[in-house]
Design a protein around this nucleic acid. Structure first.
Length: 112
DNA sequence: CACGTGACATACC
DNA sequence: GGGTATGCCACGT
């Protein structure tokens, strides 16, 4: 269970991640105005029912958080591939990893 | 209040 | 690159 305030910020921010982009847990926390709370994002994704764009969240090292070949990892990989995000060996390719800097700044100024 | 627990992050070897 | 060690922080027990 995640505090409702946190949940709302996380959900609205996550809903803005564009198709074909991925963010890390820490980046998403930053964008949501919750710096340092990467693990809270993880808890949200695990416990919350409404997970829009959940598949666009990956670890800071570029890897999918689930064990390779697990059902969930395969599901996430399939969803990413369908948006044009290349995934090999449970890891997204660098070109797809993280937003362009200007986009990052833009969203920050836009919301907070 | 004291620990233990994560779909984490960073530094270092 | 992989592996270990710490830091982190909201939550549950």
């Amino acid at each position: 269970m995640v505090n409702i305030q946190y949940q709302q910020r996380i959900e609205s921010t996550l809903s803005m991640v564009p198709v074909g982009a991925v963010v890390s847990y820490g980046q998403l926390a930053d964008l949501a105005g919750l710096p340092g709370k990467a693990r809270l994002i993880a808890k949200y994704l695990k416990t919350s029912e409404t997970q829009i764009n959940w598949h666009r969240v990956i670890r800071s090292d570029g890897k999918i958080a689930f064990p390779e070949n697990s059902e969930q990892a395969n599901d996430q990989r399939r969803r990413l591939l369908s948006e044009g995000v290349l995934v090999t060996n449970n890891r997204v390719r660098m070109a797809s990893f993280q937003w362009q800097p200007d986009m990052y700044t833009l969203l920050e100024k836009l919301r907070y």
